[in-house]
């Protein structure tokens, strides 16, 4: 059964058609990439899935339920968790404090002025575990704003993981990274998919990454779904080539 399904979804901003009549389906456990030129509507597509903007028309289904009219927070609780194109962390706090806040939020104890020792230890263990998973254990006490850009993006993913996602949406996770950082991020995405069995949908401009790890690729252009398929299928698609070549010709 499909985990996520979009039914002829559109979103207009005034006259601008950011997403137009897109139908989309993704299965549980899938690792899927979204590609497309700048302004193709990729981030808007994420916003429709996560509830940051409501669709102008169409319907969104998650795990068999229509979430079209549900708030962001409801979707987070259902397991739709995202990271942002521009890094969103708690900059003046340590890595540990960033992740701990997510863990406490997921545990629903945000408002507690006091926690019993056992609960405190349990949450501390969970925090340590997630920091370990993303490979930041050695930097747990460092202030996030003083970390390299790549590490900050990893912190963002760690925060997302605290929410126990079923579907993880990553908006350009490697943007602005150096080679070593990119490799680390790609490895992390791959491990989250294979070891933690997460369904992951990521937006990415770097084709070598997309072709390297995505099981299936969805191509958007001018808000429309242009093509969909495996790396081999998409890379020879004449429409895709035209969209990208057109882009390069303009640039």
């Amino acid at each position: 059964m499909s985990l996520l399904r979009l039914d002829r979804v559109s979103r207009h901003f005034g006259k601008l058609q950011a997403v137009q009549d897109v139908s989309f389906e993704m299965n549980e456990g899938e690792l899927r990439a979204i590609i497309g030129p700048n302004g193709a509507g990729k981030t808007t597509f994420f916003n429709l899935i996560t509830g940051f903007v409501p669709p102008t028309s169409g319907d969104v289904w998650f795990a068999g339920e229509s979430i079209r009219d549900k708030a962001v927070v409801y979707r987070v609780k259902k397991g739709i968790v995202r990271t942002f194109q521009i890094t969103e962390v708690f900059p003046d706090l340590s890595v540990y404090e960033n992740v701990r806040f997510g863990v406490e939020t997921a545990a629903g104890v945000n408002g507690r002025p006091w926690l019993p020792r056992a609960k405190r230890l349990e949450l501390a263990r969970r925090t340590d575990e997630l920091i370990e998973v993303v490979g930041l254990a050695a930097k747990a006490d460092r202030v996030v704003s003083e970390l390299a850009h790549g590490d900050q993006r990893v912190v963002e993913i760690a925060i997302a993981l605290t929410m126990n996602p079923r579907l993880l949406l990553l908006d350009e996770p490697t943007a602005g990274m150096g080679d070593a950082e990119t490799d680390h991020m790609v490895d992390l995405i791959r491990r989250l998919h294979s070891e933690r069995k997460l369904s992951i949908l990521f937006i990415e401009h770097d084709m070598s990454i997309v072709f390297g790890i995505a099981q299936k690729i969805t191509v958007l252009d001018h808000g429309r779904l242009l093509a969909e398929g495996t790396a081999a299928e998409v890379s020879v698609d004449p429409q895709v080539r035209a969209a990208y070549l057109g882009e390069e010709a303009k640039a």
């Binding site: 708690f90 900059p91 003046d92 706090l93 404090e97 701990r100 806040f101 406490e104 939020t105 104890v109 945000n110 408002g111 507690r112 002025p113 006091w114 926690l115």
Partner: peptide, 12 residues
């Protein structure tokens, strides 16, 4: 406590 952590997160 978690409440204090929440305040700091909101500030940040």
């Amino acid at each position: 406590s978690p409440l204090g952590h929440t305040w700091v997160a909101i500030r940040e």
